[in-house]
Design a protein around this nucleic acid. Structure first.
Lengths: 363, 363
DNA sequence: AGACTCCCCGGAAACGTTTACAGCTATCGG
DNA sequence: CCGATAGCTGTAAACGTTTCCGGGGAGTCT
């Protein structure tokens, strides 16, 4: 009787056929025992022994093909180097791991085509679900999200009526918290270093800044607003440009990387922080605590958002028929040394700055 | 004639059967066309049209089962938040992506059981290869590496004769570069803030520091050595302890996170950097450039090591019979403001430090 | 004792793809 | 004009697993 199939692949690695043959049972029985479902005590003993002898490890791919799930969750963020995403990733990883799955991380570089390509590629079923935190959203993008073949959860703002699981924060309000705090501690010439205005967070933070100033009756001074991207180097360069033409007594930065760049530029320019210029960042990453002075920062609850996004995703994977849910994590301000509640004191005699002190803006 | 198989799965997603049926050809022909191998012009047209109509995307899992490769590469590092690993990861990602594969990142938290478990799990064939950067190595660990079922490349020191692809640097020599530089610029009371001595890099750097001092004829002062772990908070705390009992004129730190913590502690203690204390970090991450003053740092070529490790891995995946290779990336010192070549100047009158200045060590 | 239930087992199908193989047609060269 | 050859096509096997289903044996209840 010719056996129907090779027991031992050329590879040499044992399969369920190998252990079944060795245990003298069928592959069905072997599989059942290995999965802990059914089997007589004797069968269990034989199969376990055989599996141990040959060092059997089930092939995850074959299992995935059968079960239609891979146990992988994808996370797509713009910049893996930004500590805010590291924090978010850690929180997501904890949830994902506790469900016995693994996390696959993609860095999109903020390029939208990259991101839509990633979404389309989901159709190949390599992951069970995806968490994506887009900073730019187009219609094309949105439609790719809506008819995604696998569950997707979005971290960040999205069109109000998009039927997609979504956890967001209110960064407009976050900027307002920062401005309120600065105004309350006597600052008036409040500058703003933002990221690109064609991004969702950039636009929201810009709107929030303008609204907050208006609410406090402070006239908007375009000279006090600068735009770069959400990186350290851009934040530093933008702040240098701003300092070259204006004389802020406070600076709000659209994220912590920018704030660190701003701090560097301020110190290089001889400004004291917080005495001359108060500084508030955003995202409240560990970076803010690493600086000297430690940076005040608006927490947007990145870890919490990550945790919730992961939970939403797991729920949706478990039950695809759930109605889309939307959760909101409120921002909160963490005050540290960089904006300690001291009123600005007059500069010591002589311009300590290397840049010529511009004629400035009257308070 | 009853068809042998459902053309349209309950799922509703098209398979190669769907498009074959729609195009009126066999699944073999459909598959060939979709893979761009063979097919008459007419067949090609029909299959392409059918695939487009139903929006066919090949199932990556089934393809993997057939081809015995997943197109996934795993990377296991201790701490995803450490910028040195971010840099390494970026370099690896570039190589991996350019080969059409994807990167799967694991954070081991430095727990060795975690890492061996990961290695054993490789047997399930979910990834085509793995790059691992262990900070602790045990025999158990080593054996798991040696008889790993899939190609593995190690970044970091390993037993000399382990037959494993390996890219390393010489962090002993790296520390020597830092000490040489500090000695050359007039520093004598050189402190050292290290990570755990039971880790491979911790031990190497400790040995390097001691050897370098000896070489310069500087007696070793145990008071000037502190140990924490490789994190910011530990670096800061360790430096505080060190400053409480000794008065260094320079500090070498075992990585940049520690150096940033040390900088914070120094500034809080009122020490000027570099005038009172010169500071040199290690890894030369972007963090070093973000600080004020910018930190000198010993580059261990993390990006380069990552790049090379990825290339070694791809080569091994392509040809498993290659002899094990070992590559070495030399360290180099990047001097920045934190250790600018100014000799220490006497302190201005009065102790500006909040900590009592210890009786110190004579130069 | 016969019927019924319960459990265990093995055969075979299924997941969706690639590919070896063999059969067919058409073209070309002799 | 016929045989060889090249190119295309479909059938079927294979990747390694899980699971449905039917058969059979042992035990229990009537």
């Amino acid at each position: 009787m010719g056996r129907k199939r090779l027991q031992e692949p050329a590879d040499g690695r044992p399969t369920v056929h190998t252990v079944a043959a060795r245990a003298g049972v069928s592959i069905a029985s072997a599989s059942r025992v290995l999965n802990g479902v059914g089997g007589s005590p004797e069968t269990i003993r034989k199969v376990r022994a055989a599996a141990a002898e040959v060092g059997y490890v089930p092939n995850a791919i074959a299992r995935s093909l059968q079960s239609q799930r891979t146990g992988l969750i994808a996370l797509a963020v713009e910049d893996i180097g930004n500590p805010v995403y590291v924090e978010m990733m850690r929180a997501i990883e904890a949830v994902v791991a506790s469900s016995g799955r693994q996390l696959l991380v993609h860095a999109t570089g903020g390029r939208i085509d990259n991101e839509t390509a990633l979404l389309r590629r989901l159709a190949n079923r390599y992951v069970d679900g995806m968490i994506v935190s887009p900073i730019r959203v187009t219609d094309d993008h949105l439609s790719a999200l809506v008819d995604s073949p696998v569950p997707v959860v979005v971290v960040g703002q999205l069109g109000a009526d998009a039927p997609i699981d979504n956890v967001r924060t209110d960064s407009r309000h976050g900027v307002a918290l920062a401005v309120d705090h600065l105004v309350a501690t006597g600052r008036r010439r409040i500058g703003f270093v933002n990221g690109p205005l064609d991004t969702v967070p950039g636009a929201a933070r810009d709107a929030g800044f303008r609204a907050a100033l208006t609410r406090h009756g402070i006239p908007l001074d375009a000279e006090l607003i600068e735009v770069g991207d959400f990186q350290y180097a851009a934040g530093r360069a933008a702040t240098e440009r701003l300092l070259a033409r204006a004389d802020p007594d406070a600076l709000v930065c659209a994220n912590d990387l920018i704030a660190v760049g701003a701090l560097h530029a301020l110190l290089v320019a001889g400004r004291r922080v917080p005495q001359d210029v108060a500084l508030v960042g955003m995202d409240d990453t560990e970076l803010a605590r690493m600086m000297f002075p430690q940076l005040s920062s608006v927490s947007l609850g990145s870890a919490e958002r990550g945790r919730r996004a992961a939970e939403l995703l797991l729920h949706r994977i478990a039950d695809a028929t759930l109605p889309p849910r939307r959760e909101q994590v409120p921002p909160s301000l963490v005050v540290r040394a960089s904006s300690a509640a001291t009123l600005p004191v007059p500069r010591p005699a002589g311009p300590p700055t290397t840049h010529p002190s511009s004629e400035g803006v009257t308070a």
